[in-house]
Simulated assay, not measured.
Amino acid sequence: MEIKTDLMLDAKGLACPMPIVKTKKTMKDLEAGQVLEIQATDQGSKADLAAWAKSSGHQYLGTIEEGDVLKHYVRKSSDEESQEKQHPNVVSNDDLEQVRSNEDTIIVDVREAAEYAFEHIPEATSIPLGELGDRAEEIDRNKTIYVVCRTGNRSDMAAQQLTEKGYENVYNVVPGMSEWSGETKSLNQ
């Protein structure tokens, strides 16, 4: 699976703290929710970027090593956590864990492809929120649909969209992948 990003920052050949300095400056130009790929050769950049993302509220997605180049992926923070949830059918992560392997269950992961690539529930199908309108017909209307994202906000919007399109038995999973403790799979597995 190719990882889709919104922007690439070339920080190859730069030593600490320059990859962080350039990343901070570049992140200011991104919209909330967009994913930045940072290419660096400084081995310390992995720990540095992960710590910086956490302290600044951005989401560190992971790193892929290709030879001497470290490709770091960071998603710009948004106001997701403070948005009001509106879809009436909400289930917990524990509820999803109990039904995730049922044949009558579909799990739709509406996070960006890069988020999905680094960690997702094995049974989940990736349909990013921005593609849901065009790809909704891929979802079997006869099954119970569980929609998951990072915190429960994008999945809330997706659950509302599906309900408006006539889908029944649609559930928003809260708090979502930010606190998922069940089995996961990643691009590297």
Rank of each mutant, 00 (worst) to 15 (best):
Y73P: 01
D29F: 13
M157K: 15
S56A: 15
E179M: 09
K165Y: 13
F118I: 02
K76Y: 07
S92E: 06
Q59K: 12
S55P: 00
D68I: 07
A117E: 10
S82N: 13
A50F: 00
K71D: 01
E37N: 08
A113H: 10
V74T: 00
E164I: 04
A11Y: 00
D6G: 12
W180D: 04
I107V: 13
C149E: 04
Y167V: 01
L132Q: 07
T163K: 09
G152R: 02
S82R: 11
N142G: 15
A53R: 01
Q189V: 09
I145T: 13
A159P: 02
S178W: 07
V170K: 04
D29K: 14
P17D: 12
A40K: 03
T144G: 03
T125H: 08
A114C: 05
E131L: 10
H120C: 08
S155V: 13
H72Q: 06
K165S: 09
I3F: 14
P19W: 08
S55E: 14
T163I: 03
I121E: 01
L30I: 07
A136Q: 12
W52K: 00
S186I: 07
A124K: 05
Q86M: 11
L7G: 01
H120I: 09
M27N: 02
Y116H: 11
N169T: 07
Q43W: 02
E168W: 12
K24T: 11
N93Q: 03
R100Q: 14
V90N: 04
N153L: 06
G166C: 13
E80S: 10
M18K: 15
P122V: 10
I20A: 05
K165E: 14
V148F: 08
P122L: 11
Q98W: 07
L30K: 12
A114V: 06
K143Y: 08
S126H: 10
A136G: 01
A32H: 06
I3V: 15
N93V: 05
I127K: 04
A11M: 09
H87G: 01
D109H: 12
P88Y: 06
S181V: 10
